[in-house]
């Protein structure tokens, strides 16, 4: 069985392929073999004209218009990006300027407040100094008036004491210089 199968397989291959012996492709006695070339020329010329005059240029146009659209869109996107970039730059510049202005304002306010405070302090000091000076003057006046008021009382007391001790009233010209010296020594001491 196996041998038979192999024999069959071997025998049918060439006989199947070359059953008639000649290839129709090489049969040039058949007029159709060469005439098909003539008809092919006609068909191909028509196909060439259809493709070169209509088909291919139309497809080329479609592809070109697509490339145009893509290029245009890309250019628009690029322009938009540049616009956005400038807008961002402007925003940043505005932010920097505003920050600088605000800092200047703050510094100015601080300086103003400081100056006002200094001026207030100076005015207060002057007022206090004036009050102090007035008070001192008042004290000085009170002291002077007190000292002045003491002199007649002391003269009277010294006269009375001397009258009691000596029985005579000293002259005004003797008493007065001694009184002044004694008072001066007291107030100084």
């Amino acid at each position: 069985m196996r041998k038979l199968t192999t024999a069959v397989l071997l025998s049918i291959l060439p006989s199947a392929a070359l059953a008639e012996g000649t290839m129709p492709q090489m049969d040039f006695t058949n007029p159709l073999t060469l005439d098909q070339v003539g008809w092919m020329a006609v068909i191909m010329v028509v196909l060439y004209l259809v493709l070169s005059r209509w088909g291919l240029p139309q497809i080329g146009k479609v592809i070109e218009s697509r490339a145009d659209v893509i290029a245009k869109d890309l250019a628009a996107a690029r322009a938009a990006k540049i616009e956005a970039d400038t807008a961002v730059a402007q925003l940043n510049a505005a932010l920097v300027a505003a920050r600088a202005a605000a800092q200047g304002e703050v510094a100015r306010a601080v300086a103003e407040a400081k100056a006002k405070a200094t001026a207030d302090a100076a005015a207060l000091n002057a007022q206090l100094d004036a009050k102090l000076a007035a008070a001192e003057a008042q004290i000085e006046a009170a002291r002077a008036s007190a000292l002045a008021a003491i002199k007649p009382v002391a003269a009277e007391a010294a006269g009375a004491i001397l009258l009691k001790l000596t029985g005579s009233l000293p002259g005004e010209d003797v008493l007065a210089p001694n009184l002044d010296a004694a008072l001066l020594a007291r107030s100084g001491g």
Binding site: I12, A16, A17, L18, A19, E20, T22, M23, P24, Q25, D27, N30, L32, T33, Q36
Partner: peptide, 9 residues
């Protein structure tokens, strides 16, 4: 089987 018959014009 004629395998070449398919090519005949």
């Amino acid at each position: 089987i004629n395998a070449l018959e398919q090519f005949s014009l």
